[in-house]
Design a protein around this nucleic acid. Sequence first.
DNA 1: TAGATCTGCGACACTTCTGTTTCAGTTAGT
DNA 2: ACTAACTGAAACAGAAGTGTCGCAGATCTA
Lengths: 207, 207
Amino acid sequence: MNRTPGRPLRADAERSVRAILAAAERVLAEHPGATVEQIAEAAGVTRTTVHRRFASRQALIDALATEAAAKLAEAIEDGHPETAPPLVALHRATANVLRVKAAWGFALGPAAAGSEPAARIHQEVARRCVELLGRIQEQGVIAADADLEWVRRVYYALIGEVLHGQPAIAGAGRTTTAETATDPDPDALAALIVDTVLHGVGPRAAG
Amino acid sequence: MNRTPGRPLRADAERSVRAILAAAERVLAEHPGATVEQIAEAAGVTRTTVHRRFASRQALIDALATEAAAKLAEAIEDGHPETAPPLVALHRATANVLRVKAAWGFALGPAAAGSEPAARIHQEVARRCVELLGRIQEQGVIAADADLEWVRRVYYALIGEVLHGQPAIAGAGRTTTAETATDPDPDALAALIVDTVLHGVGPRAAG
DNA sequence: TAGATCTGCGACACTTCTGTTTCAGTTAGT
DNA sequence: ACTAACTGAAACAGAAGTGTCGCAGATCTA
């Protein structure tokens, strides 16, 4: 049975879909093996309704992954990677991505991978990311002989690292610059990530 | 029923246990939700036998996680973090860890976490790691005001990153230094990781 | 070689989850 | 206000997995 109707849904049905997706993210983030029933309960809906809107558990996860991937792409674009100065764009995009990934941890994680359309979006995002890094490289801020794919992966890894130790990041990075920031706000973390990717943790070259 | 007998196992039974653990790693690495039956089949054993040796599926995973954690700890110690020069120890330990993590990807991954004894070992490993980083910091190779816990997490993240894109790392890092190394050997990768952690991907400070 | 141990085989009860269906009652849209 | 769409409730069949048991035969060990 196809639950991807051509006709537009009624307002309440649309609301249900949103509630289910939001609940799925919430529940699956904590327990990836969670039941459809648990998701339904968290959404304030019956299991029957979930199955009415999503053909299968997998279909639900795929939809979730796709939606989240779209938000991720949007987060990058909101940094204006084309028009803004590359480093500014990178910083803004990083902060945006941190917000999105924090809110859609499961849907953007490995457990939700395998969704075909989502995978395409992620691939496109990676392309844009390398593009932006290339522009930064042209400015000489990234070594000319650096492998941009490796740079991108380091960058991704640090984003992921920052996100799964929320309270652990008190006075992150250099205690002098970041002080004891009690609030792990995305901008400070983005600065930490970008700085670490570019310069590592070694002592600063004078200047 | 307790499958942790006080008496020593017979030789063939011991062999079965080893085969089951090895097969579990192999199978679960590719499909974390794999069945006990699939594991048994891969081990050349019946499901009954698996249950004879491990009280439950979870008990099997816990045993796997614990064994792998021990190998990880061993990998660190093999770098002689106490006696060798800190940077040498870090490099050796990194190469060793890469080997171990490549072979025990599932058992050391998040899916196998939650095992109580394994968790304690991992905590101990992290402590040793920070200790070593502290010694490197004293040498001035890591900035004096850097948060070592953050450094450790960056280090871990890069190790993880290197490991889940095996064939993608052809001419890793700086193409000039690494050339097009067709073989992603642990030592080259370890050098890449350590270098990136310390200096990032920015242009080298002259020298 | 004798006795203890281990294994495969086949079966069993039990639980849990999925996906479907029907139907009566509610809610949105026009 | 009328119709179409949506929902909850309650059941159903079915699949799949887990853990257990007993037994006959193979395999180790002393």
